[in-house]
Simulated assay, not measured.
Amino acid sequence: MTAIGGVLSTSASSTTTLQVSTSGTVAPGGALNQNSFLQLLATQLQYQNPLQPTSNTQFIAQLAQFSSLEQMTNVATGETQLQSGLATINSNTQLATAFSIMGDTVSVQTGSGTTVSGIVTSVNTQSGAIMVTVGSQSYPLQTIVSVTKPGL
């Protein structure tokens, strides 16, 4: 038995080969997704040999694999969301730190190895990096080596 555009061919030796059309069953990048798995399972049920049906054990194993795939997908999605949230928290923490030192005297290590001291007059972002302005020059927040509060 052979199904064109679809799916299944069975030889006389009762070996079943599943051939999947790539229209709508393959995720971008060529990876099989959850819908692909369900379509394969439905097609397998549709074209199984009625004289030698697939055993319940095989179906349970396939459903367990599908469940594992779904859980791994959920974990990967959750991990991506967690990483995004942590990056946002980190950025907000750095921004709060920069604002908290406005008006303070800081020492900044420059790229050439010298140290510049002065009062932080403003805070801004440049290309995603948080910058503090000391005098007329902006420096990355990470280059600050010391902070002195006025009057302390």
Results as ranks from 00 to 15, higher is better:
Ala64Phe: 03
Leu41Gln: 09
Gly24Val: 03
Asn49Met: 07
Ser67Met: 04
Pro53Lys: 02
Ser68Gly: 13
Thr43Cys: 06
Asn56Ala: 09
Gln39Asp: 10
Gln46Asp: 14
Pro50Lys: 00
Tyr47Leu: 10
Leu38Asp: 14
Leu32Asp: 03
Gln39Phe: 06
Pro28Val: 02
Gly29Ile: 03
Asn49Pro: 09
Pro28Cys: 00
Pro53Cys: 04
Ile60Thr: 14
Ser68His: 09
Gln52Asn: 10
Leu18Val: 15
Gln46Leu: 13
Gln58Cys: 09
Thr22Gln: 10
Thr54Leu: 14
Thr54His: 04
Gln62Leu: 14
Thr22Gly: 11
Asn56Phe: 07
Asn49His: 11
Tyr47Arg: 12
Ala31Val: 06
Ser55Gly: 15
Asn33Asp: 08
Asn56His: 00
Ser23Pro: 11
Tyr47Ala: 15
Phe37Thr: 02
Ser67Pro: 04
Leu63Ala: 10
Gln62Ala: 14
Gly30Met: 04
Asn33Ile: 06
Gln19Trp: 12
Asn33Val: 00
Leu63Arg: 09
Asn49Trp: 01
Thr54Tyr: 06
Phe66Arg: 06
Ala42Phe: 05
Leu45Cys: 13
Leu18Tyr: 13
Asn49Ser: 14
Pro50Ser: 01
Leu51Cys: 12
Ser55Val: 07
Leu32Ser: 00
Gly24Cys: 01
Pro28Gly: 04
Gln52Gly: 09
Leu63Glu: 08
Gln52Arg: 10
Ala42Trp: 03
Asn33Arg: 07
Ser21Phe: 03
Gln65Pro: 07
Ser67Tyr: 02
Gly29Gln: 03
Ser36Thr: 03
